[in-house]
């Protein structure tokens, strides 16, 4: 065990990079540190109590609510935010369009299927869908619904989101 962390400095491993966090209160949530200290505003803060999923990030391969992770306790963990998905998926099937516009296949499908209305929940959903499809490339409808049951969208009614997931499944199948 290293010495307990005080308020001076700690380092997080995010999107493949070591990111020092300086002069921060160690009780801050990972969501706050990402957005306010590390200039990674992709994860959104809405409920701050784990109910909405708009702050979803990957931590050691699990999709978690970054608002419920004390940032200092994430030292040593591998964190991927929505900004880092494209670098973290070098082998995934991306369309030519997706490559030129620097979005992942999931993001491209959300655009094409009209899965975005106000957009606030979108980054969390993108991370959750990547997490699902990377573990389960051909999910059932129930598995898709369950996997995004922690991501609340109040605009779309989810229909276009399910359509985007299905589109990614088909594209990845065709390219594999």
């Amino acid at each position: 065990m290293n010495e307990p962390l005080g308020n001076e400095m700690y380092t997080l491993h995010i999107n493949g990079q070591d990111r020092p966090v300086r002069d921060a209160w160690v009780g801050e949530s990972l969501l706050y540190v990402l957005r306010e200290r590390l200039d990674l505003p992709g994860a959104k803060g809405a409920c701050e109590q784990g109910e909405c999923g708009s702050c979803t990030v990957l931590m050691d391969g699990d999709a978690v609510c970054s608002c419920l992770v004390m940032a200092a306790t994430a030292v040593g963990s591998n964190i991927v935010t929505v900004e880092g998905l494209i670098e973290q998926n070098p082998t995934m099937a991306v369309t030519a369009q997706a490559i030129t516009s620097q979005v992942t296949d999931v993001q491209q499908a959300f655009i094409e299927e009209g899965s975005v209305q106000c957009g606030f929940c979108t980054p969390g959903l993108i991370v959750a869908v990547h997490h699902l499809l990377d573990k389960n490339p051909d999910p059932t409808e129930l598995e898709v619904k369950e996997s995004i049951s922690g991501n609340i969208c109040r605009c779309t009614g989810y229909g276009r989101i399910f359509a985007a997931v299905e589109a990614v499944v088909q594209v990845r199948k065709a390219n594999s």
């Binding site: 784990g50 999923g53 979803t56 699990d62 999709a63 978690v64 609510c65 419920l68 992770v69 959750a128 369950e146 996997s147 049951s149 922690g150 991501n151």
Partner: peptide, 8 residues
């Protein structure tokens, strides 16, 4: 909770 909560 949700999958996110159950992971943590």
């Amino acid at each position: 909770g949700s999958p996110q909560i159950r992971a943590a």
